[in-house]
Write a protein that binds this DNA or RNA. Structure first.
Lengths: 247, 247
DNA sequence: CAATCGTATCAACGCAGGTTAGTTTCTCTG
DNA sequence: CAGAGAAACTAACCTGCGTTGATACGATTG
């Protein structure tokens, strides 16, 4: 149900059926939320965490002028603000990007199931550490890649994650992000993202139109974005190397 | 002893004396390591984690051409590769930056003390989540600040962390990083870091000479780097706002 | 003390990406 | 199906940072 995709295909951390059931039982409420709604503000004490069931959410930090840098994008199956469970308060904002359906898990309920199942805490810890590993990959992206590389890297990451979640076939997936969203992810302006998308199109690396991403040759896109999926800790990563082609 | 600075001044996560003693007892060895030595390589299975006692270490991701992006800098008191405990394998490299003294904590010993003290795991989890929060702040730095802002932001962060560790008085501290290190932290070239340092000097924001950082007015530097220390989760943050000035 | 190597420094030049200011296309709603 | 508002797209101009290459400094070592 709600937790079907949580930790799915994560190396050595996939949930046992009883663990899954326990988390499902801890869900207090299913909520549908409109796009572009802020659900957590920095500094606000948290009493529950949010499991994303459908849609896209993001976490970001604003600068003084309201220019925003995304720190994470979340897809179905992600436990969006699980960090808030040990931290009690987050230092960043969390917003819905599309309209979403989420499952609310009160922290008291989490405490309860963890008391009964001490090993489960390792998997939750693991889940938050994957977020941290993704943050590091994003640091690499921002610090060392040019604009085309950044977008390519992000699209490779998204493809790999959506494949793991069963939401991409490896070449084509639905992604309801605007070019401005991409700009806030990649540390660029929306104008320049537009130029980059054209470039990717012309180079036959990727076509992104009306919320559909098509990647004819994932391997080539991965090379362009210097993408290496190790940081996603997937059990069955899409092979980055495509089958050898006969010349 | 070795753990004196671990989680020191961290909001609601400071160690109890018995927890501290347990971790000390879990230390299998103290090791002195030369500068610029790689101690963990991406993909290599880990059997222990490393508590930094003295010196500076860093975690980084290399690109194809060997250009490196740092993802974290660690100071005394940091549990450098604690992420490797739940993850089993890291996706990045860890290197000494200066010569260091470290305490080695075998994972089996950690397992043991956690079995006896189930609450301690929350504090270790917390410690890794602060690393993640710092990653996010670094994403903001790389994505939204200009070169001067990035260096200013990093120096503010470092000052705040070293104050918490008892290694800065808030205006002056020792920092054995080269301009090339700063470049790898801030996503710049060493040449441009040099220009930035001159700028900071001319603007009386910061002087960095022979491993000493001097910050005459931390508040002004924080404004230039849009630095807000919330993400460090300090119990007693240095006041960022200086007393209200009479116009 | 000389030699060496890492680090800092500086200048000249070029370009990737930002900025501004649009126009066009798409999508939703009444 | 008209109208409005987002989103996509474009062009012209400008600047911050990268690149290259050369010099100066300072610490270590023989």
């Amino acid at each position: 149900m709600f937790t079907d995709r949580f930790l799915r295909d994560k190396r050595g951390a996939a949930l046992e059926p009883d663990e899954r059931a326990a988390i499902e039982a801890a869900v207090s409420e299913i909520r549908d939320i409109a796009a572009r709604t802020t659900i957590v503000r920095a500094g606000q004490p948290l009493r529950h965490s949010t499991l994303l069931v459908e849609g896209i959410m993001s976490r970001y930090i604003d600068d003084r002028e309201g220019v925003r840098q995304l720190a994470a994008v979340h897809f179905p199956g992600d436990f969006v603000d699980l960090h808030g469970f040990p931290l009690k308060v987050l230092e960043h904002d969390v917003q819905t990007t599309t309209s979403v359906r989420v499952a609310i898990v009160p922290h008291v309920a989490l405490e309860q199931i963890l008391a009964e199942r001490p090993q489960l805490i390792r998997k939750l810890w693991f889940a938050t550490l994957i977020d941290a590993a993704v943050h590091r990959a994003w640091l690499f992206r921002l610090g060392r890649l040019d604009a085309v590389g950044r977008v390519a890297h992000f699209l490779c990451e998204t493809n790999a994650r959506l494949v793991a979640a069963g939401l991409s076939d490896g070449h084509r997936f639905n992604l309801a992000l605007t070019q401005t969203d991409l700009a806030e992810i990649c540390g660029l302006t929306n104008v320049h993202v537009n130029r980059v998308m054209r470039q990717l199109r012309e180079d036959r690396l990727c076509v992104f139109r009306s919320s559909i991403v098509e990647i004819p040759d994932p391997e080539r896109l991965a090379v362009r974005g210097q993408f290496n999926p190790d940081y996603l800790y997937l059990e069955h990563p899409e092979p980055v190397m495509s089958p050898v082609e006969v010349p």
